[in-house]
Design a protein around this nucleic acid. Structure first.
Lengths: 203, 203, 203, 203
DNA sequence: CCATAAACGAGACGGTACGTCGGGTCTTAGA
DNA sequence: TCTAAGACCCGACGTACCGTCTCGTTTATGG
C-alpha cells in the first residue's frame, strides 16, 4: 500500500527507511490494540514491543490516532462481494459478515474511539471512513446496482439509503445492547428490514 | 438523583460532601466536554475550572469515564413521548428529535468514546445504557405498544426490533458520513423504513 | 507538667480536654518516632495510631515540630547528678551516660531534625533547649560549682565552657563517624579532655 | 567531579544529559536552601526555579536528600590547610574558619537535617561525611602529623581524637546555645582545649 | 437540672507535592 | 540521512498529607 497517510518525504537520499520497522510497528500496534484496547494504547508501548525508538514511529505517523487509522485500514481484510445473482441474499450475507466481524474485533471499538474524536480531528474520521467504511460501501453499491437492474430492490431508494437501512439496525443494536451481536439477531434484523428495500410489487 | 454511580460511602459520619462541589464539578466537566471534546477532558482541568481540589473529584468518581457517564446521564434532558395517537408519526418525531439532539451535542461523541472502552469497563457501558439509552428505549416501547394495539405497527416485530430499525439507520448514517445529520436526511431515512414496520394490510 | 507548649486556652467551660487523648497522642508519636524516624512522622499517622481525630491533635499542638518537642522534653528521663564528691568523675559518668543515651535513641536524631529547622522556628529550638538540654545543663553547673569550690576543676573556665569541652567531642565524634558512639570511645574522649579542665596545680 | 552520587547510567547512548540542566538544578537547590531552609525545600520548587521538568531531576537524584547531599558536597568551598609551621595555631585558625563558616550558612542546618535521617538512609550520611566532613578531616590529619613530628602536639592522642577535641566544643556550643557562634567564643573554646592537646612538657 | 460550651471521632474541603507515565521533540553515536 | 537510544520539557496521573472546616455526638459545668 502506498503510505499516503504517512508523513510525506522528499525523494530518497541517505539511508532508506526500514521496511522491517514499518512491519514491526504495525504488528505491535495491532497486538496491543487487541490486548489492551485503544485507550491504553501507547506509542511508548508500541515502540517498546516493536523494538524501535519512539522517533521512528513519529517519523512515519504524527499521532497515535494516525497510526491507529493506518493499522485499521491496512489490516482489516477486504470485504468480498458475494455476487450470487440474488441482491437481497447478497446484502444479508454481507451485513452479517461485516457487522459480526466488526463487532467482535478490537477494530470495532477502535473505530468508535476515533469517531469520538472526529469533532477535533475531522481528517482522521475522514481517512477512517475512506479506508475502512467506503471500500465496503462500494461493494454494497455494486450489489444495489445489480438489484436495481434486476428488479430485486426498490428503485425508490438510493444505494446509500439502502446501506443505512441494512447495516444501521445491526450497529445500533450492538451499541444499545452491549452484547456482541450474535448471527441470529443479526439475521432477524436484516430480515425485518427487507420489506422496506424490496420493490413494491415483490409480494 | 441517587448518586448510584459515585463511589459508595458508609452512612453519614463526619463532614458531609459539599453539594456545591458536586455541582461545580459536573458543570465544569460538561463545559469542557463541549469546548474541547472527550479526549482532551482532564480531571486536572475539571478541578481547575470547578475551583476544586483534584482529590475532591476522586472522592466522588474514580475515573474520568465514571465522571463522564455521570454527566451524560444526569444532564441530558429526558425524552418526551409525543403520544398523538399516531404511532408511526410519533416514532418519526422522536427519532429525528433524539438523533439530531444526540448528534449535535458533545454527548454523542462522548457516548462513542465510552463505548469504545466498553471492552475494558463493561460496567461503564452498562451504566451509560441504563442512564442514557434505556430511558429513551422505554418511551419507544410505549409508542410501539400503542401502535400494536391500534394496528398501526406490524405485530410481527418486537419493540426492540422496531427501535433498531427506526434509530439504527440514522445513527449509522451519521457515523459513515461524518456530517451532522440534517433533519431532511433523517426524515428520508425514517420514511424509508416505514414499509418494514407498518402492518402488512396497511397498503 | 503544665502544658505550656500547648495551644493556650480560655478558662474552663464546656467539655474538658481528654487526658486519654493526650496520652494516646504522645505515646503514638513516640512509637512512630522510634519506628520510622522524624521525617516519616506524620500527624495523620499519629492520629490514626492514637485513635484520635486530626483536629484533636491540632487543638493541642499547632505543628508537627511542636508535638515532637513536647514528646522529647516530656519523655526523656531526667538526668541524675551523681555527686560522689569527685567532680571530674561525676562529669565523666554523666557525659557517657547522657551521650550514649542520646545517641542510641530516636531522640538524638530528632533533636538534630528540630535544630535543622531552628533558623525558621527559633522558638522551637529554644523550647527544645529549655526542656531538653538545659535541665542537663543545670546538673553540669552544679557539679562544676562543686569542683570549683573543692579545687577539682580549673577556675579559669566557666561552667558553660567546661560543659562544651566535655560533651562536645562526644557529640562531634558521633556526627562525624556515623557510628553509635560506644562507651569506650566516649571514655577515651572524656579522658583526653581532662587536662584542659583540671586545675593547673593538679599535677 | 564524577557524579558518583547521581543515579548510575550505562555507557553513553542516546542524547546525553544536559550540563545546563545540571547546573540550573544545583543552583536552584542551593538558592532555595539558603532562602527557605531544608524543610521547605521541594523538588517541585527546585524544578520550577531551574526551569526544568521534575523528571529531569529524578533522572539524576532519586531523592531530595540525594540532591541536598550533592549540593552540599559540591558547592562548599574546600578548606585550605594554613601550614604556618605552628600546628596549634593552624588548628585554631582552621577551627574558627570552618565552624563559623558552617554555622552561618544554610549548609550547617542542612547537614543536621541529613544526619537526622541517617538512621533511615545510612548511605546518605556516609556520603555526606565522605564529601563534606572527611576532606576537612584530611587537612586536620596533616596538621596533626606535623605537630606530632615537631613536638607541638601531644603524641598521646590520635589525629581523630584531636579533631574531636578541637571541633567538638564549637559545634556543641552552637547546638546548645542556638546563637550563631561568634569568633570570640570560638577562640575562647579553642584556647580552653589547648592544654589537652599540647605535649606534657609544653608548660 | 438542664442549657450551653467545648470537646470528641470522623471525614470532606482546597491545596501542594509526591513520584510516575506518556506526549511530542531533539540530540547523540553508529550503520 | 536513516537508525536505536535516550535525553529534553511539559502536563496529567492518582496518592498522601497538610491545616481547616463541618458534621453529629458526648461530656462537664454553671446559670
Amino acid at each position: 500500500m502506498v503510505p499516503s497517510d504517512q508523513v510525506s518525504r522528499p525523494p530518497s537520499r541517505g539511508r532508506p527507511r526500514s521496511a522491517d520497522a514499518d512491519r514491526a510497528i504495525v504488528t505491535a500496534a495491532l497486538d496491543l490494540l487487541e490486548q489492551h484496547g485503544y485507550a491504553r494504547l501507547t506509542l511508548e508501548s508500541v515502540a517498546r514491543r516493536a523494538g524501535v525508538g519512539r522517533p521512528t514511529i513519529y517519523r512515519r505517523w504524527s499521532t497515535k490516532d494516525d497510526l491507529v487509522v493506518h493499522v485499521l485500514t491496512e489490516t482489516v481484510p477486504p470485504l468480498e462481494a458475494p455476487v450470487t445473482g440474488d441482491a437481497v441474499n447478497d446484502l444479508r450475507t454481507m451485513a452479517i459478515e461485516f457487522v459480526t466481524g466488526l463487532v467482535n474485533s478490537p477494530a470495532g471499538r477502535s473505530v468508535l474511539a476515533v469517531h469520538a474524536e472526529a469533532g477535533r480531528r475531522p481528517d482522521l474520521a475522514a481517512r477512517l471512513r475512506e479506508g475502512y467504511l467506503l471500500p465496503r460501501d462500494r461493494v454494497v453499491r455494486d450489489i444495489v446496482a445489480y438489484g436495481h437492474r434486476h428488479g430485486q430492490l426498490t428503485t425508490g431508494l438510493g444505494a446509500e439509503t439502502i446501506r443505512d437501512l441494512v447495516f444501521g439496525p445491526l450497529i445500533y443494536h450492538w451499541l444499545v445492547s452491549g452484547d456482541p451481536l450474535d448471527p441470529d439477531t443479526a439475521a432477524t434484523l436484516v430480515e425485518a428490514v427487507l420489506p422496506a428495500i424490496r420493490p413494491p410489487r415483490a409480494h
